[in-house]
């Protein structure tokens, strides 16, 4: 399977709240509003991981969501990219060492998962769009390779 040149121009995004405080979720929603309008890059929010090319995880993985996060990751068809949104998702942030937490997302997902870190507390919409640019760079590398 080879990726076409326009693959990265039509990324469909599924948003998973893996235990965040909702601040990052609100910033994600603001990227589809008229001010930032990511649809001009072909990015669309979809309602199910089956349609997604990019998974957005917000927040550290808590004990209740660990199974769901892994299942949603497996349900997404290849090729896929994971975007880790916010400091909590990347490092557990202010929830460091909490009893309710399983750990940051990169310790739980399979090793071959490609992660893109978007930092901030909460992240800025500009930074999310920058993360999308990094996803494009990664997908460009996949062109011509076996996926």
């Amino acid at each position: 399977m080879k990726l076409s040149k326009t693959f990265d121009k039509s990324l469909w995004v599924f948003h998973v709240n893996s235990g965040s405080c909702n601040a990052c979720d609100i910033e994600i929603v603001s990227t589809v509003t008229p001010r930032y309008d990511v649809e001009r890059f072909g990015i669309e929010l979809v309602g199910t991981p089956r349609h997604a090319d990019v998974l957005l995880f917000t927040g550290p993985v808590i004990k209740k969501t660990k199974e769901r996060v892994l299942r949603i990751y497996e349900q997404t068809p290849d090729p896929k990219v994971v975007m880790v949104i916010g400091n909590c998702a990347g490092t557990t942030g202010v929830y460091y060492d909490s009893y309710a937490i399983e750990g940051p997302i990169d310790t739980l997902l399979p090793d071959d998962a490609h992660l893109i870190y978007v930092t901030g507390c909460p992240v800025r919409p500009e930074n999310i769009i920058n993360g999308v640019k990094e996803a494009w760079l990664y997908l460009e590398k996949l062109r011509g390779d076996q996926v």
Partner: peptide, 14 residues
């Protein structure tokens, strides 16, 4: 854009 979407969907895993 719809052409790109369809082309992408045809290359994705089914």
């Amino acid at each position: 854009q719809p052409f790109r979407d369809v082309r992408k969907l045809l290359t994705k895993e089914t």
